Amino acid sequence: MANQSVRAVGLTHIRAVIKAYVALTKPRIMLFLLFTAYCAMIVAQGGVPDLQKTVAGLGGLALSAGGGAAINMWYDRDIDAVMERTNRRPIPAGLVKPWHALAVGLGLGALSVVVLAVWCNWLSTAFSLIGYFYYAVVYTMWLKRRTPQNIVIGGGAGAFPPLVGWACVTGHQSFAAWVMFSVIFLWTPAHFWALALYKNEDYVRAGVPMMPVVRGNRSTKRQMVIYTVLLVLTSWLLVNTLQAHMLYIAAATLVGFYFLRSTFVLMNSKDDEEILAKRTFFVSLMYLPTFFATVVVCSLI
């Protein structure tokens, strides 16, 4: 019985360690990025892309995204420890040593270059590497702690997957791929500022100059509306690229205006601001997958 108990404890510990190392890669965000990349691959191909390119492209991108996330957790371990939203991450929780996270981040980033270069092409490799560097260095190490525009400028980091996916399938870029990039770029401020509005005390405690901390809630909410208007207008630019023009413009307008309405209601609110900020955040989470699913459907019918 004693040996069985020891083995059970050992297996539990191993599972916890594996789970912690997986958490370093921010798997939920990774799946989000892979989804946008795969949608771009389908549109670029005009159908389901080749299995080898799909596996190599998404696998290489997953390695790159996971590596960038591990670098982010390594560098931000000090502020993660004092923020309620992040203090249970692997490094602050003591499950992963900081230098292990750094090694994982660098290793996954290097492996992603090999996978994409060998099984896809150098253009997809280049865009993946730029996205990795943008998130791990430009956003995490330079922008995040220095400017309230951290999310605005840093939003480009999460916008690279469609460029990677498109390049992986075609070997070149297109106007449509850059529109998808721009949609994610313009979606990011309202998405993250909604989170920052109801997690404001976390950012104050950590000394991170998010827009609500530096400019106040009112200014932040106005800018959220502006970026969402630009987002809706930009989404219309895809209409001539897709087969179902009228269906696309109707669907893109509908989901865009639903998101815009949420930000507008939040901007004009004086009461229940936290509740409305949470609602806007969840609406933003629904917007992007709905938009990309619409793009795929309208490109195929």
Rank of each mutant, 00 (worst) to 15 (best):
V265W: 00
G216H: 08
N200P: 00
A117F: 14
T54R: 05
S269D: 03
V225P: 10
Y38V: 07
G47D: 12
L163W: 01
G46I: 04
I18N: 04
V283L: 05
E273G: 01
A277M: 09
G156N: 11
R89T: 06
L95P: 03
T228K: 00
V82E: 09
K270N: 14
G10Q: 15
S299E: 08
N240Q: 13
Y139Q: 11
F133S: 14
R89K: 12
M141C: 12
A206L: 09
L254S: 07
E84H: 09
L63H: 04
G216V: 09
V114E: 08
R7S: 15
V296M: 09
R77G: 06
M83T: 03
T125S: 12
S182D: 08
N121P: 04
P189G: 02
D50P: 11
D76A: 10
M267H: 04
V239Q: 11
A37E: 13
G131L: 07
A65P: 01
V232K: 00
G10F: 08
W99V: 10
Y139T: 11
P289L: 01
P27Q: 06
G60C: 06
L266K: 01
V183Y: 08
S64R: 00
S284M: 02
V239I: 14
L186C: 03
K270R: 10
A206W: 13
I18A: 14
L197R: 04
R222A: 01
G10S: 15
L129A: 15
V48P: 00
A56K: 05
H100F: 03
A117D: 11
K270M: 09
